[in-house]
Amino acid sequence: MQTALQYIFSGLAIGGIYALVALGFHIMWSTAKAVNFAHGDALMLGAVLAIMGIDVGLPIALAALLAVAASCLFGVILERYAVRPFAKTPTSIGWMLTTIAVGIMLEALVTMQFGGFSRPLPSPGVDKALNILGAGVYPQELLIPAVAVAVMLGFVWMQRSTLIGRAMQAVAFDRNAAALMGIDVNRMFAISFGLASALGGAAGILVAPVTQASAQMGLILGLKGFAVAIIGGVTSAPGVVIAGLAFGIIEKFVEGYISTAAREIIGFSIAILVLLIYPQGLFGKREVFKV
């Protein structure tokens, strides 16, 4: 019982990170019908820059804020120069490869600057573990899923109730019609990539105190975030958050009772199995296309 509770808590924490990454994919996909394959690196950038900020003596809040801003900027620049030039081709191969290229270069640069090893981000959230029904939990671990849910609710609210949110949806539905209605389509793309990358950076800062940060952390977290987006349905914000949290919990149980290799195999097998049975994801809408 106690062990199970422990797995659930730590599963929710890592699951919250997957959910935040998947939300980023959701935001980019639902606006631009393209994603950033270097999205995991936006997360890594957030974590690494926050640590470097603290290294030079910035207070933790300011370092985190600057790191998130830098991640956001990374997303905007990437969209402008790596995604947009290839957005109009019939296949997605162009922006896939350019964003992958940027991701590889960024990871290599950070490895050289930051070193090839992992470092923790000091945070008040991991100073002292709480005891909940016998399971030890850091406040940070409770914070992560809460942030994921809050961000999801905020984004849904933004889509429904703000002009920018509605404009983003209009662009997703039909970018030409949206442009005719006076919506600046390119700006919407930039905003969606910026927002997604900012969330990615924030996720990196949130996870770094728990799992440590390294130049290589982005690849696997980005990948799992995408798997979660596939499972939950990349078109559904609540769907990817639910899937992310569930994915995190399942991982912890598999890891605890079987092995870490089994964790990866089972995790990605679930993604393939879900695709087989629910091609649009568990909570995704079927996209009706007009011919």
Binding site: S92, M96, I220, I272, P279, Q280
Partner: peptide, 21 residues
């Protein structure tokens, strides 16, 4: 088979995962 019938983009992700596994 499960991947490409939905979106071509998914294949890239699933294959990265496969390589790691």
């Amino acid at each position: 088979y499960p991947t490409v019938r939905v979106r071509g983009v998914y294949l890239a992700v699933i294959t990265i995962a496969f390589g790691m596994i």
